[in-house]
Design a protein around this nucleic acid. Structure first.
Lengths: 239, 239
DNA sequence: AAGCTTCATTGGTAACACTATTAGGGCGCG
DNA sequence: CGCGCCCTAATAGTGTTACCAATGAAGCTT
């Protein structure tokens, strides 16, 4: 959604085929792709294949060594924060695991981010949150799920960016993927739960008022609920 | 420390010069590097320059467009979780900011990671932590700072990996960079503080005993102290 | 077991054709 | 006269081919 790669270039098209395949575990760790095979398989020049491999290498999906070829690395070594890789994995067979990990990450980061936002955000930024929250409430009532999703993403994004911490801000893409994925895989209620909306209002007002501890607690309530909902889904064997 | 790029290849050497320069802010966002200039400046072929640019592009440091050239993106858009980029920025002029952001991230993630480790780690993994902690205590007394650092990194790494969350586990590199950077920039006491060591012992025993809440609280005490120490350092104008 | 040879495969170079993008000029129209 | 549209040309990056160098794993030799 946020950071689509440019599919006009050839190496990106190659990447868009090989990357998801590796991310999905279709190649065992240790298996080998040679440049020539890649080039032949996709009908592209060696140069293009090499550029694709360079990118895979910088994501730590593979290593490229002379005489050996391009070797797939074990998943533990992948750069799991790379936005492209996150998307590839969310499209793959392990998407539920991936979604759980990402949601637990959100649960860890967003409460402190809300606290920092209350402390470090400018007064204008902070009060703009309540305005945004107002629109969320209205849209939630209207039942337009897609519009609500956009506002929800924007809400969480702004808090992360107001936190004054670049690493937190760097998770906006993740949060947007998680929220989007959650609706896409129908892990969301058809209408936003009033309680959840209330909590968002509490977060907005706490941040506006500079109440770091309240903001953290309210945000914690939001994300803990999300984690719990995901666990229910898993133990219920739902899918 | 953990993930050194392979400097034997030319494009990696180019990358090792251009990357840190961009990361250090030596090029304004919007400024343009053409392939020809890069190739000439480093005395390499266009192909090599292109491969380096591909990698920079996948880190979102630059965009490459026909007719325009290779444009530096604003820092907000960079992939700040990329291990290479983290290292480059830690070597640059904003390193203290970077270290603060990373430390706050640790503070957010490690307590829940410890809780998950207590719940999800295998009995062997969990009890091996107390063994490791024993060695830390011994080494802390001996005063061998370098050996202590290695054990400390290993301690936190294992907890992240025991957490059963790939995103948390993916931060091991970050934690290792932060701990290493902290000693390198002399933000550490000459000898580990007995209180901090005690807290590590609490963490190890809580995880061994499967006490998630205790593990989280003890880990929170550790990281909160680190954050506080960093804030003192900053307000004291130290460096 | 140590060292040597082989050779598949990546790494690097060069030169060229193709293509996308945009600046600017010219043209027509209001 | 001024505005807007279209065409053209210049300027990058993009993609291809061909070739040689360097590497290092595997097997062979001693």
């Amino acid at each position: 959604m946020s950071a689509a790669p440019d599919h006009r270039t050839l190496h990106n098209r190659v990447l868009a085929e090989v990357g998801p395949a590796i991310a999905a575990g279709e190649y065992e760790p240790g298996s080998v792709l040679t440049l020539d095979r890649l080039a032949n398989r996709f009908g592209v020049s060696r140069t293009v294949a090499r550029e694709a491999v360079r990118v895979l290498e910088s994501m730590r999906l593979v290593v490229s060594r002379p005489r050996t070829g391009v070797t797939v690395r074990p998943p533990e070594e992948w750069s799991v924060y790379d936005p492209q890789l996150i998307r590839w994995r969310l499209a793959g067979p392990r998407r539920i695991d991936q979604l759980r990990s990402l949601t637990e990450l959100r649960a860890a980061v967003e409460p402190p981010a809300a606290a920092f936002a209350a402390r470090r955000g400018s007064p204008e930024e902070r009060s703009s949150l309540t305005e945004l929250n107002g629109r969320m409430v209205a849209t939630g009532r209207s039942g337009d799920l897609e519009a609500f999703l956009r506002l929800d993403v924007e809400f969480h994004r702004r808090i992360l960016q107001m936190s004054g911490n670049e690493m937190f801000a760097g998770l906006t893409g993740v949060v947007s993927e998680v929220l989007t994925g959650r609706t896409e895989y129908h892990l969301m209620p058809r209408q936003p739960r009033p309680e959840a909306l209330n909590l968002h209002t509490h977060v907005a007002e706490a941040i506006s008022g500079g109440l770091a501890d309240v903001a953290r607690a309210a945000m914690r309530a939001i994300v803990d609920e999300v984690v719990a909902a995901l666990e229910d889904e898993e133990t219920a064997g739902g899918g």
